[in-house]
Write a protein that binds this DNA or RNA. Structure first.
Lengths: 339, 339
DNA sequence: TTGAAAGCGCTAACAA
DNA sequence: TTGTTAGCGCTTTCAA
């Protein structure tokens, strides 16, 4: 752009060398008088330092990229927002990309090579060989939100999905549920696998027998994908036979609410429902949704903080952290009293 | 990073000059044999071009920034997603920032100076003098999604809020509503102002008298902010006196559904409800929500396309486009037949 | 305290 | 077809 004044222009107008102008603007090693004059000129000219030139010189851009599976899922909106907030405190920008399939995630990671970013936060649903390989090749410090092998060189912040599901099921048992259905997301994803394990452990731990007909998996962690899965569960199990449903996330839980309502099954009167992630959706739903907070915001904050620490050289790049879940009880598991 | 090979390393290993290496990799003006050899060496070394250096040289980074008021509102998730999709086709990255207050928006615009971006898409809720000024100072081509004065130098893509509200109200009148309440967002925002105008026009156009007690405004376009506003409306107007509610967006509409349910008022039996934006929330809600599609995705796509055209030099920077609204009818305004 | 000069990694004139 | 050279805007040695 011809219109954008460079530091050379500022220096010329101020009658100093480029180096002096740089020092004056940077704040170090120029006489107060010179510094003031240069700053004034810069102001008048509307000088703004060119971030690209500075980045080339310094090797850092101040930008962090984040790859999430589904930007439309409120849980990632929450996570992203937490990351952005944490980064803003360090005056860094967040760049969000969306990729779900292993190949797309790998491609996205590769694309952020020695690029315009200083660090990377990846939320992989399916951390298979392809993704792990791409992560190992990433040329900037990387923190993963999700599960990775212990040996992984990347920093990891994870939820405790299994404990979360157990929390949900213990709660349902307490409220008198006996036949608890489970609507999962895809089992080939990390959360899908862990949540199924958590479900089976909790059922077994309660002394209930394992009934495969109570388990069903949606093709995706979305409302649309969950609907047929929920319907299949209700058809198969016989609607009255189920007295509670645990959903692998809030979108799936809301689909369950809808499917139950369509069949005239009252929640929580005839069937209890628990979601996971504790997104805004849980408050909004009618009835409002009991949900397991898997610490989305906390994970985002921790991941961002860890990445910043690594970039500052303050921390090991490979630290693994786990965030504890918490149950938030709402109407979908509470017998009605008022109104 | 010491580990990242530069083009100089590739050139050395291939026994050619840096310029030849660049040409070989770029695909122009090198002999096939040389090109193959250089590409092979680059492959072996794991060479990845440094985007920052390229950007400094070419003056473009391939990055577009977008500033939205509220990343958690599904309508912006939708818009952002559409933009990202459009940009990806041109191999560009999207950088999303969140800012709502005029000062924050202005600051965000300023921060993206001769920075790491080639273009900017801004979605301002309150395009006051401060924001307009910042927009005029933006050092990259900018497209605004929202309303701006005709004289604005920026490209503009806008929804037709007024027509949208009219669509909603005509629909409600058709379904027999007589006393239609309106739950707006903040009136000092562009959508708030236009939607209120649309409401009044439509009411007047139908020959109904203007009743200020039917109008209420939330402090923000969110579920939480809408709740007290909806309650105030119901309290004030007398719950039975209202037979339909138009909400300024889906989040507010869902709050209305909740407040009505809390009072035992059946939707759509006793009161019809229409939302705006036609987000995923409208499908998810129970009852599902009739909503006016203001073309969020279309606006995103158009804004991105226009920005790309400007960057290519194919288009005027100041084009103004309006997207037509469409009504999507669902349960919240449909008397029940099945189930 | 200041200036001259080198260089970050790359592309593109200009010569050869 | 290839190499040499300059330069994008900035920071930072090294001298003065």
């Amino acid at each position: 752009m011809a219109g954008t004044p460079t530091i050379a222009a500022v220096a010329r107008h101020a009658g100093v060398s480029v180096a002096t102008a740089s020092r004056a603007l940077h704040g170090q090693g120029a006489s107060p008088a010179t510094a003031d004059r240069v700053r004034l000129v810069a102001q008048e000219l509307g000088y703004r330092p060119n971030a690209v030139a500075r980045a080339l010189q310094s090797g850092r851009t101040g930008q962090i990229a984040m790859i999430v599976p589904d930007a439309a899922n409120p849980v990632y909106a929450r996570m992203t927002s937490a990351v952005q907030h944490e980064l803003a405190a360090d005056d860094r920008q967040l760049l969000v990309a969306q990729a779900q399939e292993a190949s797309a995630v790998a491609a996205a990671i590769q694309r952020f090579g020695p690029q315009l970013i200083d660090g990377l936060i990846v939320v992989p649903l399916r951390p298979g060989p392809q993704v792990l390989d791409a992560l190992d090749r990433a040329s900037v410090p990387t923190v993963v939100i999700g599960s990775l092998p212990e040996s992984a060189r990347q920093g990891v912040v994870r939820a405790d999905s299994r404990a979360g599901v157990r929390l949900a099921i213990d709660h349902l048992l307490e409220r008198g549920a006996h036949r608890i259905g489970f609507v999962n997301g895809p089992v080939d994803t990390t959360p899908g696998r862990l949540r199924l394990e958590g479900y089976r452990e909790a059922i077994a731990g309660a002394g209930l027998e394992h009934d495969p007909s109570l388990e069903v998996a949606a093709d995706d962690f979305t409302y649309a994908a969950a609907m047929p899965a929920v319907r299949a569960l209700l058809d198969r199990a016989g609607a009255t036979a189920i007295d509670a449903i645990v959903a692998a996330n809030d979108l799936i839980a809301v689909a369950a609410l809808r499917a139950l309502a369509d069949r005239g099954i009252d929640v929580p009167g005839d069937c209890l429902v628990v979601g996971m992630d504790d997104t805004e959706l849980a408050q909004i739903a009618i009835p409002s949704l009991t949900s397991v907070d898997l610490g989305a915001a906390a994970r985002g904050t921790l991941a961002a903080a860890q990445l910043l620490a690594v970039l500052r050289g303050d921390a090991e790049a490979t630290e693994h952290t786990t965030v504890e879940p918490a149950l938030v009880v709402r109407e979908s598991t509470t017998r009605r009293e008022r109104r």
